[in-house]
Amino acid sequence: MGIASPDLSVKIGKIEMKNPVTVASGTFGFGQEMADFYDLSRLGAIVVKGTSLDPWFGNPYPRTVETPSGMLNAIGLQNDGLESFLSEKLPFLRQFDVPVIVNVVGQSVEEYAEVAAALDKAEGVAGLELNLSCPNVKKGCMIFGSTPEGIAEVIRAVRKRTGLTLITKLSPNVTDIVSIAQAAVEAGSDALSLINTLLGTAIDPWKRKFRLANITGGLSGPAVKPVALRMVWQVASAVDVPIIGMGGIMNAMDAVEFMLAGADAIAVGTGNFVNPMAAVEIVTGIEEYLKATNISDVKKIVGAVN
């Protein structure tokens, strides 16, 4: 006799999620468009697009190109800035019964701290995800996230300005992700999310041109899943904070693999583009998996790979 309704709830820092499924920053906008497809309250949490102090224009186009089982993007963190987030986007998201996590980007340590301080006072923000891993902008982001010292400096500055749950998003474009993860935790990060995109490029052989205006972009989708899974497992084995795993999750079984590798929650990214219903279908699929395997609580599969 299977489990009637398994407990799907998980906790990331102080953030209570009704299920372990969230969405990857930059693949869900600020929720408005996705609300046409389903009730956003069905998600465990929402992570919005990278938000900076002032608006960012983003990169020239073409910004995206499809690659085998994946895609490259070089959006360059186009966003309308903090003011518009607080006055337009956040009020919309407050209608839903779902924790909102803001992906924060900046060109300097001070900018990260300033955005964090403003969000700390805003009603309806559950946590911050520090994007210290975007490969598509020249200043900030991955520059900070590529060394243990750089990442720690930003986290310490932000930590002083907010009591919100701090999630640090890690880049896979480093030699040793574990040492960076450890530095982030020591500096005061409450949780980690990984992976951001893998730096890559694509060339059109007939035109002899790069396919992205920015030349390089970040690889995402099923192609990156094995790398992401390995990194989640390595980091989960080395640190004690909750982990949000992502990278190529398209369906519930992908999600379960990440949880078995040690992720407490998972995020759907590129999968939203292929199937706008992916995230909510994954919630249902995880529940079915638990029932089929007679597990009463999703937390029991975290790190449970043999």
Binding site: T27, E66, N73
Partner: peptide, 14 residues
């Protein structure tokens, strides 16, 4: 333009 999502969430097709 090249489209990844087609629904306005990725800001790719600008």
């Amino acid at each position: 333009n090249n489209m990844a999502c087609g629904i306005g969430v990725c800001t790719g097709c600008v």
